[in-house]
Design a protein around this nucleic acid. Sequence first.
DNA 1: TGGCTATTTGGCAATATAGCCAATAATAAT
DNA 2: ATTATTATTGGCTATATTGCCAAATAGCCA
Lengths: 105, 105
Amino acid sequence: MEKAELIRFKAQAQVMKALSHPTRLFILHELANEEKCVCELTEMVGADTSTISKHLSIMKNAGIVDFEKRGTSIYYSLKMKCVLSFFTCVNEVLKKRVESQMVLV
Amino acid sequence: MEKAELIRFKAQAQVMKALSHPTRLFILHELANEEKCVCELTEMVGADTSTISKHLSIMKNAGIVDFEKRGTSIYYSLKMKCVLSFFTCVNEVLKKRVESQMVLV
DNA sequence: TGGCTATTTGGCAATATAGCCAATAATAAT
DNA sequence: ATTATTATTGGCTATATTGCCAAATAGCCA
């Protein structure tokens, strides 16, 4: 593997990793509909504010979400909507997996 | 977050996680062209055979790759080609990130 | 100002992941 | 049969991730 290739794969992996946690997928799912502030997401997930803040920070650093300060709240929104298209495929993968498990029964 | 939702997000996260490591992305990239045996991938990556075997196992469990034994070799192939389509978007994310860094200079 | 709410950051402990080596299994070739 | 080749698994250590708490920061309002 070449060095330039490795750098690119690392960068891609970082973006994918930002989409590899159940809570972050939930957040993505919510932001797909409309922007939400940290407190709203915290409430919905039922975790500590700091935990949600860190998840959002990971997604922000990956370039997936954007934020805007309004009053004391910070509203996060989905910056790269194209990531939503991943889930058609991911769900196909899951479906195929279930199907092949069915065969075993 | 509902329980059924959580289960689904966990399953999706597992698939995404299988695509969140530079080496696994390299493997994906190679398998996109043609099937490869573990020894070929090991050679290309330059890691221990056991390391590559474990990476392949993660991708196999996620339902992304398939394998076939032929002789003493085991050939892995890309089962879910749709995952390749992710990278158009991932590269857009990376491009936007670079662009916004450019603005800062 | 002082207090209140919203968010981020640092620190820490628990857990998960990665990668090497050694041991094992399965097939092929001499 | 014995030996060589290919791959998987278990074990171990190093590193990364997660999630809570506590502390710090920032804006709003009385």
